[in-house]
């Protein structure tokens, strides 16, 4: 067992976990943050993407103890001061989700994608950079639209309708 201490969605949390506890398990089972999902066991699907110190990571591929001392943002903490983050609003407006299971990971990946491409995004880049996130419902068509629209809204170029 090991002690862990981190800041999750702006709140300091501490705990004592089995050494093998993955970050995603710690978030879901110890902190009750069930918006982060587990869709595979080979770090392929991206349903568990969160931000660790500002960068998107797959929370199934890191131990909770490795994240100790870091700042973690999950889908629940993406819009601390607003109803919705512009990327969340874009997914709703453009029907970028159906069953919703991959959606938190998609949105967390998309927000990071915008950060990594300060010059802006195009369809090819979005499709390429979604390589680590699998969706079985949407055929990605509306996810791509959502990410592009969310990126525009984050840059302040267009207003995305809040829900």
């Amino acid at each position: 067992m090991s002690d862990v201490s981190m800041v999750v969605n702006g709140r300091k949390v501490t705990g004592n976990v089995e050494d093998r506890t993955l970050l995603v398990q710690y978030l879901r089972e110890n902190l009750g943050l069930t918006g982060t999902h587990v869709g595979c066991d080979t770090s392929q699907c991206g349903a568990c993407v969160v931000h660790l110190d500002g960068k998107a990571i797959k929370s199934c591929s890191i131990l909770a103890v490795q994240a100790s001392g870091s700042e973690v943002t999950t889908i629940e903490g993406l819009a601390p001061d607003a109803d919705l983050h512009p990327m969340q609003a874009a997914f709703k407006e453009h029907h970028g989700l159906q069953c919703g299971f991959c959606t938190p990971g998609m949105i967390m990946t998309a927000v990071d994608m915008v950060r990594r491409h300060p010059g802006g995004l195009d369809e090819k880049t979005v499709r390429n950079d979604l390589e680590g996130n699998i969706c079985r419902c949407t055929g990605y068509h509306n996810i791509v639209k959502s990410v592009l629209a969310g990126a525009e809204a984050m840059s302040g170029k267009t207003e995305t309708k809040a829900a």
Binding site: H37, F91, K92
Partner: peptide, 21 residues
Amino acid sequence: VARKEDKRFITGAGRYVDDMV
């Protein structure tokens, strides 16, 4: 019409079986 159910899914508030305690 934009979907009524989306709000819970895009904010991580969906409730799937694995989320039940």
